[in-house]
């Protein structure tokens, strides 16, 4: 039941509905499945379609053809409002930088996604605080993003992504703005927190040392999935 299948494919030339040249496709014939609790690294050169894949998986972009299943529901068929609700309850996001609101102290930045789901302020704050505590960052609670280091900001971003207890966390170059050692720290925290929470993790990265934290690595090139990784599951 907790198994999640994700498959994204684009039209091939000759499709009567939307004729698109093969060279213009960001993704083509991509078939991928992600198990609950699995961590997956998506690697590949710039422009290979990694971010597009992530956006399609997270229901941000709708594929021109093909489908994306989350527990049997096709994301590509859901309306904008439903996908928004789904992102609010099922997905967490960690980006390279610039995701924390500069006016809000750390604790409220973490609580915000929970509040967006309609949880009252006090409850959201106490949930956020338990995550801060779990990641041993309680001294940062009242600091604002401008008063934190890059590594601290990413840790807050991780707490923020996990606070809603998502089933999948999407991370797009989460260590891109950090030095190697801090990056490794952040990745360890991210993978550990996801494991504890039972969340799946999808990390888009250029960096093999970041990918090494994940249980499986897939490679992309020119919109095609060229390497399905070791523990591949077949998508249906």
């Amino acid at each position: 039941m907790d198994y999640q299948r994700a498959a994204a494919a684009k039209t091939v030339p000759g499709d009567a509905m939307q004729p698109v040249a093969l060279s213009q496709l960001a993704l083509s014939h991509v078939s991928l499945a992600l198990a609950a609790g699995e961590s997956l690294a998506v690697m590949g050169p710039s422009g290979s379609g990694k971010s597009t894949l992530l956006h399609v998986l997270a229901g941000i972009l709708r594929p021109t053809a093909g489908s994306v299943y989350l527990r049997g529901n096709d994301l590509a068929r859901l309306g904008d409002a439903e996908r928004t609700r789904l992102r609010r309850s099922e997905f967490g996001f960690v980006f390279q930088s610039g995701q924390l609101l500069p006016e809000l102290p750390a604790i409220e930045n973490i609580a915000l996604p929970v509040m967006l789901g309609g949880t009252p302020y006090k409850q959201a704050i106490s949930m956020a605080f338990s995550w801060l505590d779990a990641l041993r960052m309680t001294p940062l609670a009242q600091r604002r993003p401008g008063e934190m280091s890059g590594g601290q900001m990413q840790r807050i971003a991780i707490a923020r992504a996990l606070c809603i207890r998502p089933s999948v966390v999407f991370a797009d170059e989460p260590t891109g703005a950090l030095d190697r050692k801090t990056g490794a720290d952040v990745m360890r925290i991210l993978t550990e927190a996801c494991t504890q929470n039972g969340s799946s993790l999808v990390v888009v990265t250029h960096d093999p040392s970041v990918a090494a934290f994940c249980s499986r690595t897939v490679r992309m090139s020119d919109g095609l999935l060229v390497d399905q990784g070791a523990s591949e599951r077949s998508a249906r």
Binding site: A58, L86, L101, I164
Partner: peptide, 12 residues
């Protein structure tokens, strides 16, 4: 950037 993030996280 921050607005984009909020929308991603499900802020309508």
């Amino acid at each position: 950037d921050q607005y984009r993030m909020l929308v991603l996280e499900g802020a309508d």
